[in-house]
């Protein structure tokens, strides 16, 4: 990866961390939208404008100094130090503390699982669909059960659905985890930026998945079941999705997926990752 793409990778990672932080603390995009409409507009614009201008100046300076073609690699000490810092930040703020994880709802969960299933089906020949795509299909079937049962699910059932969501993201990471992208010489700034955002989003969820899997397994003992109700409202909104709106969302996502495959704009894995990220953060019920 060139230095220029790495700077944009870091910009994506920092922006995604900031949005996750903002969402977990104050309502994220809705707060941002309200700020842009109301009295805080100048402050928000100054903050984001300043950040964007600062980063653009860095990229420009790297280009003018002839550093933009300098190749950085994972084996460089300073790059490793940045990754260790990012990892410790994710661990402290997102896994040990609750300062980063976005609160999702039934629709964003279903959208993510449909997209992961679409991605795995698109990568397999039809004869292998049943034998290989089941890790993506099983959590989706469970979540569809929630969608069509009109009773509000218990905290334990929502915990199982949320675990299915985390497992889908793990499966997506397994399919897209390509640190080889880091050593690719021809990676555009756009790809670097998207890679940085996805790195934070998927890394955070994969790290949290182990902690949550332990929590869900503890529900085997009836005495542990009441406690899960104390954290599920923080992670998973109780608001149920409408089947019609979910259908429209899925059709739109499938259309976008098909269009991207036709015109080969970005890799399918990256598109699915970005759509999952957007569905978890923009399509967020308060």
């Amino acid at each position: 990866m060139t230095l220029e793409a790495f700077l944009l990778f870091l910009a994506g990672a920092v922006l995604e961390s900031g949005l996750l932080w903002s969402q977990a603390q104050r309502g994220g995009f809705s707060r941002l939208a309200a700020g842009l409409r109301g009295a805080g507009r100048v402050r928000w614009l100054a903050l984001f404008g300043g950040l964007a201008a600062g980063w653009a100046a860095l990229v420009l300076a790297a280009r003018l100094l002839g550093w933009s073609s300098v190749v950085v690699s994972l084996s460089d000490d300073w790059v490793q130090a940045i990754f260790v810092g990012l990892g410790l930040f994710l661990l402290a703020a997102g896994v040990l503390g609750d300062a980063l994880l976005p609160r999702i709802n039934e629709r964003s969960l279903l959208t993510a699982q449909v997209l992961v299933l679409l991605l795995s089906l698109s990568q397999l020949p039809p004869r292998l669909w049943f034998s290989r795509a089941w890790p993506a299909a099983v959590p989706l079937l469970f979540s569809l059960g929630l969608l069509f049962s009109r009773r509000a699910p218990s905290a334990a059932v929502r915990a199982a659905a949320y675990l299915g969501y985390l497992l889908s993201l793990l499966y997506l990471t397994y399919q897209t985890a390509d640190m080889g992208l880091f050593s690719a010489a021809q990676i555009s700034g756009m790809q670097g930026f998207a890679f940085g955002s996805l790195f934070i989003f998927l890394g955070l969820h994969c790290l949290f998945a182990l902690r949550f899997a332990m929590l869900v397994s503890s529900l085997l003992l009836p005495r542990n079941r009441p406690a899960i109700g104390r954290i599920m409202p923080r992670l998973f909104s109780e608001k149920q999705a409408s089947a019609r709106r979910f259908g429209i969302f899925s059709a739109a996502a499938a259309g976008l997926f098909w269009l991207n495959a036709q015109f080969n704009l970005i890799s399918s894995e990256m598109l699915v990752g970005l759509l999952v990220l957007l569905s978890a953060q923009v399509d967020n019920a308060e």
Binding site: L215, S218, L220, R230
Partner: peptide, 24 residues
Amino acid sequence: AWAVVILHPEFLYLGYADFNPGKL
């Protein structure tokens, strides 16, 4: 280790719920 965690998951709630093992 997982068996011990299933028996006593209280510390897993640390940071996401008020930590009070007596209540969990």
